[in-house]
Computed example of a mutant assay.
Amino acid sequence: MAGSFSFLRRHLRLVIATGVLMTAAVVFVLLYFEPQKLVLDDRVDEPPPAAAGTPATVLSQGRVISRGHPGSGTTRVLRLQNGSRVLRLEQLNVENGPDLRVRLTEAGPRASDDSYRHDYVDLGALKGNLGNQNYGVPAGVRLDRFRAVVIWCRRFTYAFAAAPLSVSRQDA
């Protein structure tokens, strides 16, 4: 026992430096990779968008499919009475992860992850990995160009889930 303390006293700087480096490594992993998000859920329950009390027109509807992580739910693109468009995720259930984004992409729902890195419109951060949520589609975006909605991990350039998107040219 005395030998152990003797070693620690002789190598105190090394022991402290090792402790600092290990602590820094743990902090880095928790902040950058965010592994805790794989076990923590964020539930969002936004009501369907409404404009002047009239129902929205459904321009497209698709089922969420699993990509890199399990996923399910429904996507709908709605045109409100005022002409604005909203992407609605309903009963979404995907694994949580770091820096998840909602994208419209020209690549299909089963395309390679590399194809999702180009020709997309980012609708913003995923509000929650569970529930119902709405994302405004910017004016001027031609929806007939896009073939999928993708839940995209921007940090690791990785598709968590996707859904087909099919909007006719006249509705775009």
Results as ranks from 00 to 15, higher is better:
76 R>D: 15
103 R>F: 14
91 Q>K: 06
14 L>C: 08
122 D>K: 14
72 S>K: 09
116 Y>G: 05
71 G>K: 03
16 I>H: 06
25 A>E: 03
65 I>W: 04
59 L>S: 05
19 G>T: 01
86 V>M: 14
34 E>F: 05
95 E>T: 11
56 A>K: 00
47 P>Q: 12
27 V>D: 04
145 R>G: 11
131 G>S: 07
126 L>S: 11
144 D>I: 02
14 L>G: 09
24 A>W: 00
28 F>M: 06
167 V>G: 08
6 S>M: 02
144 D>K: 12
124 G>S: 10
139 A>C: 00
33 F>E: 10
105 T>E: 12
60 S>D: 12
115 S>L: 06
39 V>R: 01
55 P>L: 11
113 D>A: 15
42 D>L: 15
26 V>L: 09
99 D>N: 09
107 A>L: 07
125 A>D: 07
81 Q>P: 00
113 D>I: 06
24 A>S: 11
139 A>F: 02
18 T>G: 13
160 F>M: 01
95 E>M: 07
100 L>I: 08
50 A>E: 08
125 A>I: 04
126 L>E: 12
33 F>M: 03
158 Y>L: 13
28 F>N: 02
63 R>G: 06
36 Q>P: 01
150 V>Q: 09
136 G>A: 15
65 I>Y: 04
150 V>P: 01
105 T>W: 03
